[in-house]
Nucleic acid binder design. Sequence first.
DNA 1: CGGTATCCGTTCTGATACTG
DNA 2: CAGTATCAGAACGGATACCG
Lengths: 141, 141
Amino acid sequence: MEEGTSKLPTHCTDTDGDYAVLQWDTREDCEVRQILDRIADKWSLLVIALLDRRSLRFTELRREIDGISQRMLTVTLRQLERDGLVSRTVHPVVPPRVDYELTPLGRTLHSTIQSLVVWTEQHQNEIARARSRYDIRSDAS
Amino acid sequence: MEEGTSKLPTHCTDTDGDYAVLQWDTREDCEVRQILDRIADKWSLLVIALLDRRSLRFTELRREIDGISQRMLTVTLRQLERDGLVSRTVHPVVPPRVDYELTPLGRTLHSTIQSLVVWTEQHQNEIARARSRYDIRSDAS
DNA sequence: CGGTATCCGTTCTGATACTG
DNA sequence: CAGTATCAGAACGGATACCG
């Protein structure tokens, strides 16, 4: 199961100048690239960000994430569960109750995601201005 | 242009317990959601991460990002340029030379993106194990 | 309530051909 | 070299119907 053809060095840490440089695997099928695609997903990001602090039920998540369909929430939660980032707890009651919460691994990711969200909130006006500038220039062309 | 129907509070910072809680706009057309979709994009993430330290030419970026098509690199770079995250410099020489580099705004985003990449690298094995566990359970069902 | 299964339009993306 | 334009196939994602 360990690779035979030098598969998966995945990244190497290198020193260039006076600080560490991260050089990741350039291959498309690289593990890191695949995982990034998953967690940087439109819906995954929101689910992880919302599962801060307390567990949420399926319907609560759906209500919080405007625009998500039942199908996409299910798909997203299954992926996150598969990746060990979210845990799913079924309470055997009627009507059914299912709680989702971050696993310890998921919680370590949460802070990084949160800083991405915070960055976006703090810079949204700057980005909006940049877009206006760009669009005006394009119109003038 | 300022909203008339209480548009765009976009997020409010709230205190609950002993630390700040971020509650963002749940609306789908919210600015933050749109921007997150852009920067958390599969290719954008990689471009921003690669543009650390030095500017890169179009072809250099294409070589570094395995699997990206010319079209998608162009599209991605235009979006990042529009958002004011990447600057495009055309050198009037033959053959043409175009350099891309992070703007100051882009550089502030870079560190956040980088920590996402680092998180992924550090936890890829843990995720791979979680996936195996999940897949084995599913097979057994 | 919390799903699954299916259908089907839209969107994304790569391949290809062409250009300044 | 660094693109643009076009097109077709694949993937995404919503709507709907149904189930434990």
